[in-house]
């Protein structure tokens, strides 16, 4: 084979491969169902890490006695395992945890935790992070701390259970909650 051809080919390979990687990521990013999930900052002192705002999902799980106790005591329960979402995109009607091989039928979407990410602090199903522009970060951080505002993250859940956060929005919280 001609040496110049090989030179051009080896130069073209990384460019083409990266273009393909982009195309693949783009294609994968279009797959899935969108949901609006209420979130709260899980480390109120330090919701920002670098360029990322960190938060935890407040899935509308069925009230159990243990959970009610935890909430009364002011604990944030530690949750793990896949989350089953029922509803009509992007509004979640209800959610439940699937622990230990429970029935997965009836779920519109299932969000599965990403075990390798747990060491970084976020598992993608109960906690996650969103890239925010530096200029917007301080206002978003303040709103996330604000008791009168409820934060929502729009996520896109792929059929394989990977949830990708897309954006964060805020709505005024109903007044009845706290006395």
């Amino acid at each position: 084979m001609n040496r110049t051809m090989v030179w051009a080919g080896t130069l073209a390979l990384p460019v083409l491969a990266l273009a393909a990687a982009w195309a693949n990521t783009h294609f994968m990013a279009q797959q899935g169902t969108d949901w609006d999930v209420p979130v709260s900052g899980y480390d109120p002192r330090d919701p920002l890490r670098g360029h990322y705002i960190r938060y935890q999902y407040d899935w509308p799980l069925p009230k159990t006695a243990a959970k009610a106790d935890d909430e009364e005591m002011g604990f944030q329960p530690f949750l793990s395992g896949p989350v089953c979402i029922v509803g009509k995109s992007p509004a979640i009607a209800s959610a439940r945890l699937i622990t230990g091989g429970e029935d997965e039928t009836g779920c519109t979407s299932i969000v599965r935790p990403n075990s390798w990410r747990e060491s970084d602090g976020e598992d993608g199903a109960h906690t996650d992070r969103l890239y925010v522009p530096q200029a917007k970060a301080p206002t978003m951080e303040a709103k996330l701390r604000d008791e009168k505002q409820q934060a929502f993250v729009r996520i896109r859940v792929r059929p394989d259970g990977v949830a990708t956060p897309l954006s964060m929005s805020f709505m005024p919280r109903p007044v009845e909650a706290k006395e």
Binding site: A21, W22, T25, H26, A29, H51, R117, L130, Y131, T164, P165, L166
Partner: peptide
């Protein structure tokens, strides 16, 4: 850069 734009990790 791809990871940043598509929020993947």
């Amino acid at each position: 850069h791809i990871g940043q734009v598509y929020q993947t990790s």
